[in-house]
């Protein structure tokens, strides 16, 4: 029997309670318990196929878009299980925004890219101001203030990714999920995105999936290490699980689990 804890501490914004996610009959992750703190940057690391992206996508119900994907357990956000039947996934995604692996601006102008999300969320204030402040927060304003009417595609890859971040900020979410936001970018753009994330930390909670352990070390306060192993009752395939979850310092300096130690020292992955 799963207990839902309605009295989560104030600083916990999102918590996973015994979450298992499957694609059809294939189980991707099993029995994840995890609490994300408000105002923190939490990074999810782990080898390929350990289900960290799956977990991330489950946090704002993007998994709904993948056929056959099902979730057991509870994801508590703001005291509500977002997988409750009465919950509207659209509303969840308005409060938990997402930035994807590949920069994916809309085929519209830079201005419209940001205004689009705000407008559909019923924003009625000064749109010019919102566009400017969002771009400033994403550290993109200086680079594109003179070409707001140019297509979003005219920007470089790193700029496009920051545009996508600005677009997410513009809907003023409480949490921003980032799925390997820098994996398609060069080191300089990566650095800029990381600076942006440090700025954003003041106002938002960020959860980021990354393959780059140095990045996890640089940007995050907390780190969750996922691993995949074969279960005896499984069909032979590897199933992901949360191996260790602690402050980033502890994970990288004195991990409790041997497997974490091996992963961060590059023995596998």
């Amino acid at each position: 029997m799963i207990k839902t804890n309605k009295n989560t501490p104030k600083n916990i914004i999102l918590s996973l309670e015994n979450v298992s996610i499957s694609y059809g009959t294939f189980e991707a992750v099993r029995n994840v318990f995890c609490n994300f703190k408000k105002g923190n940057i939490t990074s999810l690391i782990g080898p390929s196929g350990c289900g960290k992206s799956t977990v991330l996508r489950s946090l704002n119900r993007m998994n709904d878009l993948i056929p056959n994907c099902s979730l057991k357990g509870t994801v508590l956000f703001d005291g509500t299980n977002i997988y409750d039947k009465r919950v509207d996934p659209v509303e969840v995604r308005r409060r938990i925004g997402m930035v994807f692996q590949q920069p994916n601006p809309f085929p519209k102008s830079i201005y419209e890219n940001i205004a689009f999300g705000a407008r559909i969320n019923g924003f009625t204030g000064d749109m010019d101001e919102l566009v400017e402040s969002s771009l400033r927060k994403a550290a993109l304003w200086d680079e594109c203030k003179d070409k707001l009417n140019d297509s979003g595609y005219s920007l470089s890859g790193g700029q496009q990714q920051r545009l996508c971040i600005a677009r997410t900020i513009a809907i003023e979410p409480e949490i921003i999920l980032m799925d390997e936001p820098c994996s398609a970018l060069d080191p300089i753009s990566t650095l800029k995105i990381e600076e942006t994330m440090h700025e954003l930390k003041k106002n938002y909670t960020i959860i980021i999936v990354t393959h780059n352990m140095q990045q996890a070390l640089r940007v995050s306060d907390m780190t969750a290490f996922f691993n995949a192993i074969e279960y005896e009752d499984g069909d032979g395939g590897k199933v992901g699980y949360l191996a260790e979850f602690n402050s980033t310092k502890k994970i990288f300096n004195s991990p409790k689990e041997k497997i974490t130690q091996e992963y961060i020292s590059g023995k596998f992955g």
């Binding site: 704002n60 659209v90 559909i120 969320n121 513009a170």
Partner: peptide, 9 residues
Amino acid sequence: YASLGIGAS
């Protein structure tokens, strides 16, 4: 995903 991810229906 981009559109749905920022809360578009």
